[in-house]
Each structure stands twice: as structure tokens, then as C-alpha cells.
Amino acid sequence: MLTVKNLSVSYPNNPVLNDLNFVLKPGDFLAVLGKNGSGKTTLLRAIAGNVKYTGEIRYNDKVLTKLPRTERAKIVGVVEQGMSPAPFSVYDVVCMGRTPYARMFSWSMEDLKMVEHALKKVGVWELRNRLITEISAGELQKTLIAKVLAQDVKILLLDEPTSHLDLQAQLTALSIIQQLRNEGKIIIGVFHDINLARIASHVLFLARGEYLFGKCSLINEEHMRRYLGVDNQLLAQYLGGYVHV
């Protein structure tokens, strides 16, 4: 169970998150929605432990900030939006997901098994020897998902994980997420696509200083207007009632 209490993050002269509170149970899928700059990525960074915050983030009985980095990495995993290019193979990158577990000079048999399993599950096994500098953005995103799978974490943080994927890949990603939920993992994802957000169990709307947390059913016209600044009439006009609220 993930407990977030009184979470506040502010960069100098710039309060981003203000006194956030919410709880997620195993199997929950939280969609984080908000305009650009509302703090979605900051929230992910806070849970991952990469940014300073006040308040408390707890997994079961463990306070995340008190854990050593390797222990935290066994609990929280992040699918990044991108990274510096370097001549590594897909296989190597997915192996890096096993960093918190590995021994002195090599990967263990179990490490390699997890890596193979992750590569196959996401569908990039055939690409494993290709350099990440030579694959498409979509294939890179799948690689990062595989990395987090190999990392075998309890909480997955996804920063727009499907933005580069074709429909097939998107569906694969969603089915993987569903599988992970069934295994009892907690998923937190930042999405811009409302439709994808709707398969979540919970939603967190973020706006400067304000937030709204609750079940997925909270995605309605009123909230979309308030937190996303979206005029539903415009939506209806251009997308013909595309969003069913």
C-alpha cells in the first residue's frame, strides 16, 4: 500500500505540489492528469526519490526517504520519457534494471532470467542486440518498460509511456499494465490521452496548488474543465462527443 501524506514540493520561489494526500492499494492504477507545468512529473520524481520534498511517502510500513537507494529501487521503478544516447544494446539497458540486485562482477542466473522474461513479455526479444541509438522511439519506450519489468518493483511510475507507440504496442503496453495490476503492483501513470487514462482505477487531477483525488469516475466534464482547462463544448464540436463522461 502506498501512502502519500502532506506532500509538498517547491522549487525556489515556485511551489509546485501543495499538501498532497492520497492512498493506493495493490492493484490500483492511478492516472495523473493536469496541464503542462502542473507538477505531474514532479510528483513522479518525488515518489522516485529524486527531488526534495516535505511530507511523507510510505510503502506499507517503510518510509521511502529512509531507505538506501538500492532498497528503494527494488520498490519503485520508473519508465522515463527519454535518456542520454549511448552505445548500449537493448539487452544491456534492460539488464540495468537489475542493478539493485546484482553481485560484484556479473549478473546472476536469476538476473538473466528476469531480463529474458521482460524482453519477451514486452516484445523486444528480437531487438535485444540492436543498439538503442539505432531503434525507433517506440522501440526505445518498449525497452524502458522491459527495464522496469526486469527491475521487479512494487510501484511503477510511468511518464507518458505510450506517447510513441503504435496502436498494437499501446494495447500490448496496456495489457502488460493490466497483468501487473493483477499481480498486485501499483501503477501510477502520467497520460495526456484521456482515453488511456480511463482504464485507470483512480485519477489524480493536478493544477497549481490544487488537486483532486478519487476513483476514475471523477473524470467528467466539470473536472476536466476545472483542472485541464478544457472546454467540453470544443471537445464535442471537434471530436463529436469523443469522450464519454
Binding site: A48, G49, N50, A73, E80, M83, A86, M96
Partner: peptide, 13 residues
Amino acid sequence: SLGDHFAMNVGVD
């Protein structure tokens, strides 16, 4: 090599 954030996310101090 893949960035500070990437490294932090896989548990590197």
C-alpha cells in the same frame, strides 16, 4: 552513462 535520473531510478547513489 544514460543520465543521472536514469541511474537514480535503478538505485544508483
